[in-house]
């Protein structure tokens, strides 16, 4: 009897509503059926057991066994995760799949495991796709349009650096105050993945949205190392397979949400949406990428620099390859 995996995450507990719960639902089903019930999974969604950062600590302490965590919440335990914030890196969703399923994903997982010591990384599920920028001042299409716009970011120096390098002003604001801040004009705009913009109802208080696709920030799915190593080889293999399917499900649901009225398709009725041309996007990349690399060089260790190099190479390779060709 392998025991129970208590799996905590900070999203709504509806598998058709968000990629995190879709992922855990698939994982739970495949683990329980694949081990004939010798390992079963109990999912605790909606922050019931704490914030994403608390979940990581609880997994490390063996209080719960597994979690999905955002890069922001992982950063305080593993600062090098910040290299994933290289702006304007990917040219499409498929490239993100290739990079995180490939050698770079392996290297990142190994580095996280070495740094933390008490977890096993099982994969990098989709959080809902690329970041977009919304605001109420004017439509942002060109680099110069960022000038003077005040954007809310998380309290994450790299996010602030990216916005500042584009010419915007970046102010951290508590999540609970973002909606009212956007409504009254304390802040002009914000950046988030499209499904978050949708479910937080920001379209009600924002006029323009630009599909900058400037960031992609996956979840990190991890399990307590002592628990995992206490399982039989076949149970471990089942968990690995289930995790892979969990990641696939998170990607499928993310694309479906984007196409539904809970994603981009729905937002288009309430907010003016702009997609960028290749020229507009490379101008922004030209401003933001050097600033970000300088930020990594100044604030992070040598190993972070190596990881960033590997990340850039993997992204370039993925961007260059075309589907079925």
């Amino acid at each position: 009897d392998g025991g129970t995996i208590r799996f905590g995450h900070d999203n709504k507990t509806d598998p058709f509503e968000n990629p995190a719960h879709a992922c855990t639902a698939v994982f739970s089903n495949l683990v329980t059926s694949g081990t004939n019930g010798s390992v079963n999974v109990e999912v605790f969604g909606s922050n019931q057991l704490g914030s994403a950062a608390e979940h990581v600590q609880q997994v490390r302490d063996g209080i719960i066994q597994a979690t999905l965590t955002s890069t922001g919440a992982l950063a305080s335990y593993y600062p090098r995760i910040d290299v994933l914030n290289l702006p304007f890196a990917f040219n499409g969703n498929a490239s993100t799949y290739a990079v995180f399923d490939g050698d770079f994903g392996d290297a990142l997982a190994a580095d996280i495991e070495a740094e933390l010591g008490d977890v096993v990384v099982l994969g990098f599920p989709d959080t809902g796709g690329f970041f977009a920028v919304t605001n109420s001042k004017h439509q942002i299409a060109d680099l110069k349009d960022f000038e003077g716009i005040r954007i809310r970011t998380m309290t994450l120096p790299s996010h602030q650096t990216i916005m500042q390098s584009l010419g915007a002003e970046a102010y951290p604001l508590a999540w609970g105050e973002v909606y009212s801040g956007l409504q009254t004009g304390v802040i002009d705009g914000q950046m988030n993945p499209v499904p978050i913009i949708s479910f937080a109802n920001f379209a009600e208080v924002q006029k323009y949205m630009t599909l900058t696709n400037h960031l992609f920030s996956p979840y990190t799915m991890m399990i307590n190392r002592a628990f995992f190593e206490g399982l039989s080889d076949s149970e471990q293999a089942t968990i690995r397979t289930a995790a892979e399917n969990c990641v696939t499900a998170s990607r499928g649901l993310s694309r479906i949400i984007e196409a539904s009225d809970r994603g981009l398709a729905g937002l288009m009725d309430d907010i003016e949406v702009t997609a960028l041309t290749d020229e507009q996007r490379s101008a922004m990349a030209g401003a933001a990428q050097p600033a970000f690399e300088a930020h990594v060089a100044e604030n992070m260790d040598e190993r972070a620099g190596e990881l960033l190099g590997m990340f850039k190479a993997a992204v370039a390779e993925a961007n260059a390859s075309t589907y079925l060709n």
């Binding site: 709504k12 509503e17 909606y179 109802n201 009600e204 208080v205």
Partner: peptide, 15 residues
């Protein structure tokens, strides 16, 4: 404040 939390959590229009 409570309506903001409810609206974000349950995906209901805060306005």
């Amino acid at each position: 404040g409570l309506m903001v939390v409810y609206g974000s959590l349950m995906g209901v229009s805060i306005a």
